[in-house]
Amino acid sequence: MFAASANNNDPLVRFKNVRKSYDGKNQVVRHLNLDIRQGEFLTLLGPSGSGKTTTLMMLAGFETPTSGTIELAGEQIDNLPPHKRNIGMVFQNYALFPHMTVQENVAFPLKVRKFDAAAQQQKVKTALAMVQLDGMEKRYPAQLSGGQQQRVALARALVFEPELVLMDEPLGALDKQLREHMQLEIKRLHGELGVTVVYVTHDQDEALTMSDRVAVFHDGMVQQIGSPQDIYEAPDTAFVAGFIGENNRTHGTITQAGSRQATVNLDSGMQIQGRQQLGMKVGDRVSVSIRPERIALNPAENSTDVRCQGRVQEVIYLGDHVRVRLVINGDPDFVVKQPVSQVREKIAVGDTVALGWNHEFVRLLDPIEKTAAV
């Protein structure tokens, strides 16, 4: 249904040193250099005020860069109005016309582009079938559920066969179960159509579920871009490690540094080893990061590189796993997540239990994390 207009080896979208300021002083987006590949699902993830939505609005044409350029399929589009960019848009509030039927809403972009009546009818039929709304052509938005309204908005964004679809928090108004269902539906459509999608969210789980790549924004800049697995398992900064999923973080000083691993003396007095970032050296202050699910409770002897003890403060049963908060070496908020099937004995508040992990799962990152607006 969709045809690529750029060479598959070239990015479909390219931001070149783009900056955006509304008052001439504070930069909402800074030094943005970002390539978006043809056919990929790229999520812009970050807290409120991080610059992700402004980036999307500049790509859509609703905002103009203060400096720098934006290219679409090799052509500069900075001064091109939104309706001439051949970009589909889906918003959180759906933006459906309440006085129009489903069919009329979906046909609207085709009318604007002056498709003839027969082409409009066929394309609307195809688009509604894609989002599983066959038979609802004559209904009005007020007669639809939130999920159905979002499907109409999605059909309207796809009906004119754009080469790029932008989605701004499109599932934020839906309940958890419906939101998770729509995540899979959007991902399915992306796989079937091959259209390029740029998706904005502050929901980490949503980004990990849906994306080919994730660009993590903070303070107007991309902190890291990569696959969901890379972002989660190998964060480049303390902000990324803390923003994506749950994370145990403490601080210390490097006492020995190798090519990939370093030894750190923690502020609590414990010594730990982990994977260091490029350029770290002896004497550097670092934050130490380890994911709760990479820690084993009561591990078998010699099954982990590190073995220590902690006192249980809290146990929460979450169906498929338990979340245990412990005091370990003076840290009162050390968290372990373990599948229920791997919990070999009952754990209660006040118990002293053994913990273990491997060096490869410990990340040594920058020591200072700026506070983000939430």
Score class of each variant (00 low, 15 high):
R275P: 00
G356V: 02
L110D: 03
R37Y: 11
D78S: 11
Q256F: 05
A372D: 04
L365V: 03
I254M: 08
R179P: 09
D284N: 14
S145M: 04
D134V: 03
R37F: 11
D168L: 09
T304E: 13
M1G: 14
K123V: 02
L72I: 15
S5L: 13
A207T: 08
S67R: 05
H190C: 06
G147D: 11
V13C: 03
T304H: 11
V200H: 07
W357L: 09
H99P: 06
K176E: 15
G146V: 09
P65D: 11
G74F: 07
N86C: 09
A155R: 12
R275H: 14
Q120G: 05
H31C: 06
H83F: 13
T54K: 07
A95T: 06
D23E: 04
I244L: 11
G242M: 06
V335F: 00
E71R: 00
G356W: 08
G242P: 05
V159T: 01
G242E: 10
L42R: 06
I87V: 15
L174W: 02
V159W: 04
G350Y: 13
D35R: 05
S50K: 08
V362A: 12
I328W: 14
L42W: 05
M182P: 08
E206T: 09
Q204I: 07
L174C: 12
R323M: 12
I77W: 01
L297S: 06
L110F: 02
R260Y: 12
Q256L: 13
N302Y: 10
K125F: 08
V216A: 06
L158G: 07
Q309F: 14
K346P: 01
Q261N: 11
G319C: 13
Q277P: 04
E169K: 06
L59S: 02
G274C: 10
H31W: 02
Y199D: 01
Q276K: 15
L133P: 09
F361M: 10
L32T: 05
S48P: 11
L174P: 13
D366M: 02
P292A: 04
T250K: 00
V240I: 05
A6I: 15
G51V: 03
D366F: 01
R260G: 00
